[in-house]
């Protein structure tokens, strides 16, 4: 039954099997196919041994090469950091005021600053750094509670605001709800609201709140409401009202002031990143020279 013979018509060998007189030509799979098949097996076994391949009851087979994607990521980020190290060194060596004058350094700082901003700052100040009225100050306007020069911004980011450290930006406003009577607070608020209205410059002094302001507020906020950045007293004569510009909002702020907080970032971010953030915030539109 199983006798290989040569087919007379084609000259090929038969498989040796015969069914009802029908024979099958022996047409083995091509060698290249067979070899490829074997190679896939060799590859698969090699992969199984060298790389993490299957789970064990408590762990997984780590493979002889000890490769892991986490390690690979760490190496890649390490390489990226190495590539940046020259720029970071230059960033640390350059005086803050001179970083922006260096075109390439500025681009590097702005790219890194934007990434760091979106990661760390956008949560409060917003992705566009527009802040939120009643909550967080805008960083792209020209009003700065603690100064808008690069050195000021740098110090604010490093030490934070009312965050407890030695050098943190610290100011506090008394809650006048416990000091003044409600009608006195309302009169003070009316006077404060008039400070930013240029048309009332001449008549403002006759307002009933003028004397109250002079006694209670002018020491910090200035006689004309010009504020004080050193003391962290906001300007009252401008159009920007962090906690709202309605009469109610101002009365509330006088009676029981909100005072925002910002963490000190020096313990969370490295100095180069803080400098990048500084440059980024400074170039958003409100930076001062």
């Amino acid at each position: 039954m199983s006798k290989q013979e040569r087919d007379p018509l084609t000259g090929q060998l038969t498989t040796g099997h015969e069914w009802d007189g029908i024979k099958e030509l022996r047409t083995p799979i091509p060698n290249w196919w067979l070899i490829t098949f074997v190679v896939t097996w060799v590859f698969a076994i090699g992969y199984l041994v060298l790389y993490p391949s299957f789970a064990t009851t408590k762990d997984y087979a780590r493979g002889l090469l000890g490769w892991s994607s986490t390690k690979e990521l760490a190496e890649a980020t390490g390489r990226a950091r190495d590539q940046q190290s020259a720029w970071r060194t230059q960033l640390l060596a350059t005086p803050l005021e001179k970083i922006e004058a260096n075109e390439e350094l500025r681009r590097f700082a702005m790219a890194g600053g934007q990434a760091a901003f979106n990661e760390n700052c956008a949560g409060c100040h917003g992705v566009g750094a527009g802040g939120q009225i009643g909550q967080f100050p805008s960083l792209i306007d020209d009003d700065w509670l603690w100064g808008g020069k690069v050195t000021d911004i740098h110090a604010t980011i490093r030490h934070g605001i009312r965050d407890g450290g030695d050098e943190t930006r610290l100011s506090a406003m008394p809650a006048f709800g416990e000091i003044l009577k409600p009608e006195e607070i309302a009169a003070t608020a009316d006077f404060v609201l008039s400070l930013s209205d240029r048309s009332r410059d001449a008549t403002r002094a006759s307002l009933p709140g003028a004397a109250l302001y002079e006694t209670n507020c002018a020491a910090c906020h200035g006689a004309k409401g010009e504020g004080s950045r050193d003391g962290g007293a906001p300007r009252l004569d401008d159009a920007i009202w962090l906690y709202g510009s309605s009469r109610e909002a101002v009365i509330r702020q006088v009676a029981d002031p909100k005072m925002g907080q910002m963490p000190a970032w020096q313990s969370r971010l490295d100095e180069a990143t803080i400098r990048m953030l500084t440059v980024y915030v400074h170039t958003l539109g409100g930076g001062e020279k």
Binding site: G128, D141, I240, G286
Partner: peptide
């Protein structure tokens, strides 16, 4: 558009 406009201290809008 984030924010759509910026209020500046002298009352101008950017």
């Amino acid at each position: 558009r984030n924010p759509p406009f910026v209020q500046l201290s002298d009352g101008s809008v950017r």
